[in-house]
Each structure stands twice: as structure tokens, then as C-alpha cells.
Design a binder for these strands. Structure first.
Lengths: 121, 121, 121, 121
DNA sequence: GTGGTCTAGACCACA
DNA sequence: GTGGTCTAGACCACA
């Protein structure tokens, strides 16, 4: 797991986004234990308060849960994970389509563009 | 021209984004005169300083220019407008593809998804 | 005589500067009659008030003088013209040296630079 | 670091210019931390908004960068600093040569003049 | 009328 | 503590 941060948005938000992606894409496995806040703080060179804030958000989304005195775990609920994945996907698709529409770019052009990008890679 | 503002990002940024879209999509025509800062301020119920800040950004992007004591105009340079449009489009496409890849969604799935959205509408 | 204007400084100032240069460099001859404000206004596409303001400045500098009901003339006084030329020159040289010093560039480097520029042309 | 302000141009521009000089001449070292906006405001007796505006310009020029909630730093990029220094130097030299040419003063005369200034000092 | 600058001061998120 | 945003409002030069 690698994390990248820029100065364009709050660090805790960037952390939430990246952890969400690791969870919904399965790169962090369901039910797995998370490193402690202290550990994460050291590893990522981020203030523990900021880590805590990010993890709190993930807990609100029911993607992780806390076992008192024991640590934090990724949910085992495929349903929760799937729901978040679907939400994220839909949100991003809708936003993308809207953006393209506002730019005056049709669905056909988008698809053509995507296919070309596919060939180049 | 309609403008909508939410509380998720600074007003001046939202104004810049919306004006950019109006310009690159041609809804404000190249060379056209913009309403004065005072007028926009009244219309949008936004402080003139905030309007000024947004327009300054657009001027930095060379999408508008200022005639001293006369007013502000959209650039007539199709090149500038086209360049910005291309930049905005590419940026959003790349971001979208990256997001989808991180979510573990393949290009084929995206296209399928887009086509389905097309049918629904 | 050609005039060029940008939006970086007030037009009347740009007009003063350009006229000063034409006078001190002799491109407008001493004692010569200037076009009327109306004519200049038409030619340069500049508001007559702006022309008037610029000419007033030149009159304060004793580079031109007004013959009531007859028009405006460039001074015949070589002394006045020479004095202004010297002032402008010294001012610009001092400013340039100061700028270069602030940039940490020595006199020797400047001269080297100038000579190189000479060769290229 | 000393700052001087006159009434000939906007304060924020003068501040930008002076900070640029301090940066490109190395008097503020690359990577160094700038005083906070509030501190500068107090020291220079200038409104924080005006300071902010000046620093924003420097950030646009990529001469400084912001660490969220932490402060502002001079870039460590020698490339950026060098590029700006070169730009400033060339600009001023070209402007100077043009001015002198318009005044009808030859390169030889300029150099003679510079050398004389050297002797006087 | 136009845009530009500046101040005072409040308020916010973030770390 | 840090920077960022926004408003209210004054004032200015210019055309």
C-alpha cells in the first residue's frame, strides 16, 4: 500500500479517499486488521489527529470498525463494501458525464476517446 | 447564463469553473463583453472583491482580458479557448480513467456503463 | 511617427513617454507644429481628454508650448530638449544599474552581455 | 530583509518585486521558510490580505509553495529560481537597450557611460 | 462609468 | 498556530 499526498486538498480527505479505494478494490482484505494510528502516523508522517479523523470517516461509512482496546478492522461485510463501491462508481460516472456534457462533448466522442486511450497503452 | 453555488468549494473557484465552461463551450462568445464587476456582484449577490478574484484567474488563463476603464472581454483567440477546452477535457478523462482503474473497473465495463446510461435517457 | 499602446499602464503616460522620445531624439523637429488634439484623437483612436492630459504634461516639461487659438508647437529650445534627454538617460541608466546590482550582476557582466548582444545583431 | 514602499505602484507589486529579488539573489535561501502572513503583516504594517495577494503571485511564479496549515516556503528548485532570474535579467537588459536606442544612444556610449560610473564610485 | 487596491475584520478548516 | 475566503466599504486613476 502506497499513499500519495498533495497540497490541493486536506490530507485527511486524501487519506480517506485512498483507503476507500484500497478497501473497495480489495487491496486491503475484508476483515483485515489495520495498523494502529501511531504506526500509520509514523509511516505516513502525518499527525495522529489527522489519521484519527480519516479513520473516523471510514467508520461512519461502515467500512471499518473499532474493537475497543484491540484495534481497528476492515469490515467483513461484502454488502457494505459493495455498496460503497457502487456509490463511488456511480458518483464518478455521473460527474464525468456531466462534465463532458458541459464541455459539449457527446457520449460517442467520449467512447471514441476511451477506445483510443486503450490502444495507446 | 445561470450560476449555481454550493458550499463545497470557494465561491470564486466555482465562478471560475462555470465561466470557463461557458467560454469553452461557446455559450459566451469569443470577443464578447462581460458584465461589469459591479453588475455581476449585484446579479450573483457576491461581493465585488470575490468576483474580481475569479475574473483575475480567468485573465491569468488568458481566457479574458481587460480594457482599462472600459470593461472585460472574452478573448477572441480561438487558440486560447481551444487549448483550455482540451486541457479541461483531457484532465477530466485521465482522472476518470484513473478513478475507474483504482476501483477495479475495466475500460469495457465503463463503456458498457456509458451505453446503458445512454439508453435510459 | 508610430504609436503603440498596451494595457499595462495608463494611456496618457504611454503617450507622454513616446512623444518625449520622439522629441528628444529629434524625430519630431524643434519648433515643429503638432497635429491638433482632434486630429491626434482621430489618428490614435484615443479620447481627446487623454490626449489633452498627455500634452499638458509635455507643456509642464517645457517640451512643447501652446500658441492660443493657433496650436501647439515643439519647443525650439535645444537647452530644454537636451536637459530632458539627459534626465531621461541618467534616470534609465541609474535604474538599470540598480536593478542589475539587486540581481547580483556586476558591471563587468553587464558589459560582457551588452557586447554579446552587439555581436548577435 | 528590508522593504521599502513608495506610492508609485501598488504595494503588493512592490512586495512581489522585492521578494523576487531577495529570492533570485539568494538573500532568502532556497527551501527557507517565510515568516507567516500575520508576522509579515505586523512587520511591514500592511494588511494581511495584501500580503496574501503578493505571496499568491510568487506562488504562481513557482518561487514559493505552501504547506497547508504549516506555512510558506521558498522553492528548493534552483531551476525555477534560475529561470526567474534569467527572465528578470533579460527583460531589464532588453528594455534598457531599447530605451537607449530610442534616445539615440549607441551601445558604445552606454558602455563608456557605465565605465565612467564605475570610476566615480 | 470602468477596473484596481487596500483595509478592517470576521470566520473557517486544518494540523 | 497556519493559510484561505469573504464581506463591507472606502478610495483611486482613468476615459
Amino acid at each position: 500500500m502506497n499513499f500519495y499526498f498533495d497540497n490541493d486538498s486536506p490530507i485527511y480527505i486524501q487519506l480517506v479517499e485512498q483507503l476507500k479505494l484500497y478497501i473497495v478494490s480489495g487491496k486491503i482484505e475484508p476483515g483485515g486488521k489495520l495498523p494502529s494510528i501511531r504506526e500509520l502516523s509514523l509511516q505516513l508522517q502525518i499527525n495522529p489527529n489527522t489519521i484519527q479523523k480519516a479513520l473516523q470517516e471510514l467508520e461512519n461509512l461502515e467500512l471499518i470498525y473499532t474493537e475497543r482496546t484491540n484495534g481497528k478492522y476492515v469490515t467483513s461485510s461484502k454488502k457494505n463494501i459493495g455498496k460503497t463501491k457502487k456509490e463511488m462508481t456511480n458518483e464518478k460516472i455521473i460527474e464525468f458525464i456531466t462534465d463532458m456534457a458541459n464541455l459539449g462533448i457527446s457520449k460517442e466522442e467520449i467512447i471514441k476517446n476511451l477506445l483510443e486511450l486503450g490502444e495507446k497503452e
